[in-house]
Design a protein around this nucleic acid. Structure first.
Lengths: 108, 108
DNA sequence: TCGTCATATCAATCATGATTGATATGTACC
DNA sequence: GGTACATATCAATCATGATTGATATGACGA
């Protein structure tokens, strides 16, 4: 069998790890949350308001992001504030745009 | 409502476009195919052999990649050769590794 | 034309995960 | 204590898409 390790500058990762990360990112609501958090920490109700998404759904997606160590949380009083663990994450997501449809010349 | 446009160096994209691209990438078999194609064009049977994945499944995933303009194909005789439209795609995928679990200090 | 190889398509199954509504937990203030 | 607010969890539904097996298409050589 073939070696399915994927190499980046500093590390090697199994394809399954990367697949899993991409699955986490491949959700519109989670991308919106990440985009929203890129300007700084927000509590759940701020995200729910800003994105017009029900509170329980925001909470669910934040849990997915937290489980996968993409965001961290901190309770202050009644509020729980979430923030990106790595600010570069939103840049990474934006980079994906480079590969979206019609980036190339032979596009009809 | 909030502006959900995501900005990269050269362009802006809707969150839904990027979500779609990430969904396409978020499949282990497709990542393996991309990784395999990063070393140069391959025909379907080469991919099926190298990755130990049934031919029809390879064909299906290649269609998804092609529909999303990530690969191009060229028939030569009985064989159809596929290649990455943008070689940077495999680098992009590798970059995702940076955000996988345990990249940060406060990891248990 | 016939047989074979390479690839694509189709229908059916199967698994996964997003969303929803209801409810529980936890915090603050009276 | 009791109430109100912020958040999390749970069960149920729903949609999507990966995989499989069978078969079709298309190209080549005899």
């Amino acid at each position: 069998m073939i070696d399915m390790t994927i190499r980046s500058a500093s590390q090697t990762h199994e394809a399954t790890d990367i697949t899993n990360l991409l699955k986490v990112l491949a959700d519109e609501n989670r991308l919106k949350i990440i985009s929203c958090l890129s300007s700084g920490e927000k509590c759940v109700c701020q995200l729910a308001d800003a994105l017009d998404i029900p509170q329980n759904l925001i909470s669910h997606h934040l849990k997915v992001l937290k489980t996968n160590r993409l965001v961290s949380d901190e309770r202050r009083g009644r509020w729980v504030y979430y923030s990106l663990k790595d600010k570069r994450l939103s840049d990474f997501v934006a980079q994906a745009g480079e590969f979206c449809d019609c980036d190339d010349m032979d596009c009809p």
